[in-house]
Amino acid sequence: MNLKKLTIVTGHYGSGKTNISVNLALEAARQGRKCTVIDLDIVNPYFRTADFEELFSQNGITLKTPQYANSNLDIPALGISVKGILDESDCVIIDVGGDDEGAKALGRYKAVISECEDREMLYVINKCRYLTKEPDEALELMREIETASGLSCTGIVNNTNLGNETDENIVLGSLDYAKQVAEAAGLPLRMTAGRKEFLENVTENPFPVEIFVKTLWN
């Protein structure tokens, strides 16, 4: 997979942005690139890339998080220097918070991001997510994210899943939906992500991922 210098991962709450970000970072690490993941999620208090510190350090991936991530403080402080990180790394992945609320934080870095021409901004979709089950709903949310961030999406990631009840039919049943969203948005369908065993019959840009979700119980 060809990864740009900067990949920005946006989408609906629960579309699976964080899992996509983690897998993209691992892909970059496999390609021997010096990768930094920026957790820019300041709207979601739990379940975020900051949970993957150990996995990242084992794979030589640098993780930058907001100062108060996973603490008991509810302060949306952004002390991260994206410019500094772009200068130091050859592959940067930004995991953005959900919806337009989460994308507002991205707007803070619009000027720096605009200077980096070798970039893509992915919009992650999940047909199983309530309120984005129809292509026009998914498209409307993408426009809201673009407005909030002041940046334009460049590609669609189909990450359709139903949590631990995902199966091959759910993934295959989402392909038309993903195509419709991409066509309506006028953007390429960059990948369809899922567990390897669910992607055997996906011909267009399959991206096998591992699922890194903290399971607290069986």
Binding site: G14, C128, R129, Y130
Partner: peptide, 9 residues
């Protein structure tokens, strides 16, 4: 049809 949702949602 089943959907993926946050508890609060």
């Amino acid at each position: 049809e089943k959907s993926l949702m946050k508890g609060n949602e």
